[in-house]
Design a protein around this nucleic acid. Structure first.
Lengths: 211, 211, 211, 211
DNA sequence: AATGAATGAGCGTTCATTCAT
DNA sequence: GATGAATGAACGCTCATTCAT
């Protein structure tokens, strides 16, 4: 309300934060359409409605813009996942929730889906240096969901939680990729998610007796 | 046996015709290490032991070099897959074979794994224009293996073969990616493949009675 | 009057807008000295006192730089010619005026003379695509001066105005060429122009009676 | 008579000279179509039906190929001109002969016309270094025809033979240029030549009384 | 002599980044 | 903070020329 008018400088949240967010949103759109390397900083600036130089007031470089984008969006995704996972009691239910949630979110944001699945791999350097942080966090979440359920006897224990986590991530990624590159039909991701979860869960059930 | 007769430095003459192959091999190595965009044509030339211009005698552009790389390697992979799949009679056996085969092949060629999993996504254009051809062929193969087995009552029929195919591709891709980006421990891929196949196959079995 | 207020090194700010003109002038100089193809964009940039990239803010390509140069300079020449021609009442007077004017202008700008006479022919493409526009305009002006005078009975009517126009252009061009390539002695062009006009006008007079 | 058969090497005239000529002819064609700089040595080789490298057995460089072309063709033209000029007794007749002859020759060889008029100016360097030789010879011939006629009282003496020579060369060049760049209608050059000669000769006649 | 695959110097152009305003 | 004109390093590609055969 009191919104200091001219103290412009600080208050990274109101106007300034607004501009930062506008740039990020523009970046998602542009990166999604053309890929990181083929995207021009000036295009992003134009899409965001700011001057080229302005981008450098908020991000150190084009690289850091992509990095920040992941950081920002994946952090959000992780928060949602954490929250949702805790709200579900059973192990199998959690796995299903993660799968459906993730694809559901992406379905709502096709551009983001494309950036994450496609652009995450634009540079090996990015992947190796940055991605490890958040990406590992993501895999850890998934793996611990699996491991917990294994300990509880809800899921078969003869497979590595990490390998399963990677496979699930990959499966989701692959489905999102083909969906984003294809016609991206509405509901497609959700349906695919349900079927994937069905298969995975049946596949991960403890084998009756193995006897 | 006595090989070079009249010449001294003719070392590479024997394979003069495979200059194209030498360039492709160098490209795999360089692309894998730095990604498509960060790779310099001159680096590839140097790695191949040819002059910069020589590359353009065999490939129209840097883009076409990457494209040709996929074309070449994936064609090979498809040939192997086709052959191997036909050699296995049972549906589930085929799925397992594909999974193990693919990861096994990649394990022997880490660089290629990295190029395929990472660089395939370097440019949306590449993916959209080129990949559709061979990639679709790949998905088709996988989907028809699934579908055939479903018709034979060997696999559950309540999931879409295409979706499963995409998920399997994604799972393999994800596993290969994390493996290539990680420590790439020997045997890692093979082990992961076995476990993935275990899970997938159990997940894809027709449900006992569904009762 | 007091011009620059707050800045010190603003020496070029007064003419910041004429950066385009500075580049054009540098281009005339460099093209004249080395010809279009042998001229390097970087040389022009250096001669203009700007960075290489700056040139591309004003011109789409090196080709377009040459094209713009002609467009710009020849448009100016045409304006002068049109104005001057109209100021002279008699047909023969107009022909003489055009001849003297054109060579007089070039004499003041040796570089431009060289660019127009030499570089205009650097590329058949340029000539065929671009030159037709302005060049035709030039020939039209000349031809209509001739034709008008023919109708007025001031010049012999048994020669094609177009052919005469081409010949006059060529004669002027040839004289300018040899002058620019030679020692370019001062006054040389003017003197040549007078003599050329003398010969042409006598040659174009209606023949007494031919009787 | 003794014509050594297999001493292939020497005898620049038979086979070897043949190939040289074939290359020159191909060069005329290609240069005419695309201009010197835009022409590729490999194109010329292809047009001549020889390997790229072969060209370098006959010409030191691409530059020298153009140079040799002029040397060769203009030498021929000069020979014809000299011979023909001597065959005509009167001064005015000689001027007319030169004009008609030159355009007549070009009309038969449009490509050559284009090479001479357009490509002669491809590089200032070429013009300045080489052209001076033969070109001066050409202008000298023309100027001496004029001067002789002036001395004989056949042409007005108040104009510089050199300037007139340049103007005539230019007029011929201009006419050839527009003809070659235009539709190159058959007979066009000949007709233009006649008219040009008419105008020039009337313009160069000694003035009736001048008294 | 003839070939043509190979060479590599060289150039036009792009675009992330800077900085005077 | 915001701007966008200017910068200039960097790179893909071309093509005249060479040289082993």
């Amino acid at each position: 309300m009191t919104e200091p008018r001219f103290s412009a400088r600080r208050r990274d949240d109101a106007r300034a934060g607004d501009k930062r967010e506008r740039i990020l949103r523009a970046a998602v759109k542009v990166f999604a359409r053309k890929g990181f390397y083929a995207s021009r900083v000036s295009e992003i600036a134009k899409a965001a409605g700011v001057a080229d130089g302005t981008i450098y007031l908020y991000f150190k470089s084009k690289d850091e813009l992509l990095t920040s984008l992941f950081e920002d969006r994946i952090t959000r995704l992780l928060e949602v996942l954490h929250r949702e996972v805790e709200a579900v009691p059973s192990g199998p239910g959690r796995v299903r929730r993660v799968v459906e949630l993730q694809l559901g979110l992406l379905e709502g944001e096709r551009d983001l889906a494309e950036v994450i699945t496609v652009n995450l791999r634009q540079s090996t350097r990015l992947l190796k240096q940055y991605a490890t942080k958040r990406f590992t966090e993501y895999l850890d979440l998934m793996a611990s969901v699996i491991a917990d359920a294994q300990h509880a006897g809800e899921l078969r224990a003869d497979v590595s939680p990490r390998i399963v986590a990677r496979a699930i991530f990959g499966a989701l990624d692959g489905i999102a990729l083909t969906w984003a590159l294809g016609n991206a039909e509405p509901g497609g991701l959700t349906r695919a998610g349900t079927q994937l979860a069905d298969v995975l869960l049946q596949g991960l059930l403890p084998r009756p007796t193995a006897a």
